[in-house]
C-alpha cells in the first residue's frame, strides 16, 4: 500500500494494545459494575474495533474518497440498525 505504508513497529504496538484491551475486558468481566457491565464491555470492544479499522484496515491516512465513503456508509447502516431497533425497545408500552 504505497503512499500510506505502516511500519512493522506500529502494527506490533497496535497488537499489544489490542491484547491489553482484551485483558481489560476479562478483568472488567470479573467485577460487577451493575448496569455498567455491558456499557464498559461495549466501550472496550468499540475502541478495539476502531484500532483495527484505522491501522490494520488502513483507514487512517487514506486519501481515497471512496474508502471514506465506505466507512461512513458502514457506520451509517450500523446507526440505522441500532437506532431503529432502539426506537422499538425504548417505546414499548409493556417495557
Amino acid at each position: 500500500m504505497a503512499g500510506h505504508a505502516t511500519s512493522l513497529k506500529t502494527y506490533f504496538t497496535i497488537w499489544i494494545a489490542l491484547l491489553i484491551f482484551t485483558g481489560l475486558t476479562v478483568f472488567a468481566a470479573r467485577i460487577d459494575l451493575g448496569v455498567y457491565n455491558a456499557a464498559v464491555a461495549l466501550t472496550i470492544a468499540s475502541v478495539k474495533a476502531t484500532l483495527v479499522a484505522l491501522f490494520f484496515m488502513h483507514i487512517r491516512g487514506t486519501s481515497e474518497r471512496l474508502t471514506k465513503l465506505v466507512v461512513v456508509s458502514a457506520l451509517f447502516f450500523l446507526f440505522l440498525l441500532l437506532g431503529l431497533s432502539m426506537s422499538d425497545y425504548l417505546t414499548r408500552a409493556w417495557h
Binding site: 426506537s87 422499538d88 425497545y89 425504548l90 417505546t91 414499548r92 408500552a93 417495557h95
Partner: peptide, 8 residues
C-alpha cells in the same frame, strides 16, 4: 404482531 412498540 410480535409485540413491538406501536410508535415504532
Amino acid at each position: 404482531v410480535a409485540g413491538i412498540s406501536l410508535y415504532s
